[in-house]
Design a protein around this nucleic acid. Structure first.
Lengths: 150, 150
DNA sequence: GTGAAAATGCGGAAATATCGCAACAAATGG
DNA sequence: CCATTTGTTGCGATATTTCCGCATTTTCAC
């Protein structure tokens, strides 16, 4: 595993802020020559510390006007039931996250939809029709004062 | 606002998969000449549909071995109390997301820590000491079968 | 059809990434 | 204390890519 000295931490911070910064600029900001900087970045990529790069899209401008977190409880706790549920979730484009959590219910989902109507369709026609699903509780997101993963 | 024809959708899909793909490769994949492709990307950036680019880090390799979602209820529902709470959250590096939600409690947080011990410290020393905080419930993430925002 | 507006492809100049190489620094062992 | 090894750095040359002007083609409304 690559060691995380102060320079590598700076590199990661800059790349999280702007994943498309040129190697020349990046080298400037972290105080290295371009070649030394490039080698560090390549090592961070090779070792998997940098898992990849992504464009961050403005969901609102793509028609997403409704976000909710949804807890889901299953009626059976078998491996089969969980796998079937997770397969169905993988197919649903509205679901951007699915976490297996501790507590009274098994799953926490993040669901993105165009509007309340679109969410209702998802709630009724997709989640509601899955035979493994027992309990559904929706928490509508009114705002996100902090979202470092956006 | 930029129109989202099929080509632009392809571009966005590719850039979400690999935000650092070269314009030459991207043009190939979406079936355009490099110059036409570059112009579309620049327009998507200018219009804000592409909000930016980020490196995706492997949190596990950075020492994050514990993730939890935490619901927080406040004891006062004044604007002041909310703002004070949100300021405190903004300062806490363990909190990667803070959502204002509908339901029995006001907030849903995503918290990342090195391990259970580090989380306990955060829970006790940070969250527990905020005067506005009334109820705290933790849901430990055991796995994330789907996480498009990772 | 016809004209206006937008999108496209081409080509070249400028900027950038990439890699070999030698110098340097920090640890290791005698 | 010195020699050796290992890892990192900066430099410079080359290959690649970005970026922009320009002419052509396509699209669309009338």
């Amino acid at each position: 595993m690559a060691k995380l000295d102060q320079t590598n931490q700076k590199i990661l911070r800059e790349l999280c802020r702007d994943g498309r910064v040129s190697n020349l600029d990046l080298a400037d900001r972290v105080g290295l020559s371009p070649s030394a900087c490039l080698r560090r970045v390549q090592e961070l990529e090779r070792s998997g510390v940098i898992a990849g790069y992504r464009a961050v899209l403005d969901k609102a401008k793509l028609g997403v006007g409704f976000v909710a977190y949804v807890t889901v409880g299953l009626n059976r706790h078998t491996k089969d039931a969980q796998e079937a549920f997770e397969r169905a979730i993988a197919r649903a484009p509205e679901v951007t996250e699915c976490h297996n959590i501790t507590g009274a219910v098994e799953y926490l989902l993040r669901v993105e939809a165009a509007d309340l109507g679109a969410y209702k369709s998802f709630h009724t026609d997709i989640l509601g029709t899955l035979p493994q699903v027992n309990a559904i509780t929706s928490y509508v997101v009114m705002g996100s004062p902090k979202d470092d993963r956006a």
